[in-house]
Simulated scan of single mutants.
Amino acid sequence: MSRTAFSWPHLGLIAAGGAVGTALRAGIIALGDPSWAWLSIPLINIVGAFGLGIVTGLAVRMGDVPRSRALRQFFGAGVMGGFTTYSTFAVQSVDAFSLLLALATVVAGTLAAWGGLVLGRRSRS
């Protein structure tokens, strides 16, 4: 994929997508059962990895065209970037149990991203 110069429309797509992703994450956490809060961030990150895999696969399949760039910017960098939250994930990973949960999340996230990438590449655009 080619490198594109900075433009305000690109930044606008990323910012708008980030707002959507952040609001979606906050809504899911707010609606969840507080006794399961420790699991919400890892699950959100795994779902986000899957979503980013799909976006990347679709973009690769479409080629380096303006529509593909807009898809990567809005959904990839924006929505999935705002939806996932690896800073909170890192802070949660400070004790032994959380370290095991972190490892499981990284493995599951990697598998989810791979699955999304395969699915995105195979879908019709």
Score class of each variant (00 low, 15 high):
Arg67His: 13
Thr56Trp: 14
Leu103Val: 10
Val106Phe: 11
Arg122Tyr: 11
Ala104Val: 13
Ala59Leu: 06
Gly21Val: 05
Gly120Ser: 05
Ala102Asp: 03
Pro9His: 02
Ala59Gln: 08
Ala113Val: 02
Gly63Asp: 04
Arg122Val: 08
Leu31Arg: 11
Val60Tyr: 10
Leu117Gln: 09
Phe75Ala: 13
Ala37Gln: 10
Ala70Cys: 01
Ala90Gln: 09
Ala112Cys: 03
Pro42Tyr: 01
Thr84Met: 03
Ser7Arg: 05
Thr88Phe: 00
Val118Lys: 05
Thr88Tyr: 00
Thr22Val: 02
Leu101Tyr: 00
Ala77Asn: 10
Ile44Leu: 14
Leu99Gly: 15
Ala108Thr: 03
Leu117Thr: 12
Gly53Asn: 13
Ala108His: 08
Trp114Gln: 07
Gly18Lys: 01
Thr4Val: 14
Ala30Met: 03
Gly32Asp: 05
Ile46His: 09
Leu39Thr: 14
Ala16His: 04
Arg121Phe: 10
Gly17Asn: 03
Ile29Gln: 04
Ala23Ile: 07
Ala26Trp: 09
Ser125Thr: 11
Pro42Trp: 01
Gly116Asp: 00
Met62Ile: 12
Leu43Tyr: 04
Met1Glu: 06
Leu103Met: 12
Ser98Tyr: 06
Phe6Gly: 05
Gly53Gln: 09
Pro34Gly: 05
Gly76Phe: 04
Leu31Ala: 15
Arg124Thr: 10
Leu101Cys: 14
Thr105Pro: 10
Gln73Val: 07
Leu43Phe: 12
Trp114Pro: 01
Gly115Trp: 06
Gly116Met: 08
Gly51Thr: 03
Ser68Asp: 02
Arg25Tyr: 02
Pro34Met: 07
Ser123Trp: 15
Ser7Gly: 01
Met80Gln: 14
Leu39Ile: 15
Leu43Asp: 09
Gly81Asp: 07
Ser35Ala: 15
Ser98His: 11
Ala37Phe: 02
Ile41Glu: 03
Ser87Ile: 10
Phe50Lys: 00
Leu13Ile: 09
Ser123Phe: 11
Phe89Ile: 13
Leu58Pro: 04
Thr84Gln: 02
Val60Thr: 13
Leu119Trp: 11
Gly76Ile: 00
Val55Lys: 11
Leu58Met: 10
Leu111Val: 15
Ala49Gly: 11
Gly78Asp: 00
Ser98Ile: 04
Leu117Gly: 14
Thr105Arg: 01
Arg61Cys: 02
Pro42Glu: 05
Ser98Asn: 14
Leu119Asn: 02
Gly76Trp: 02
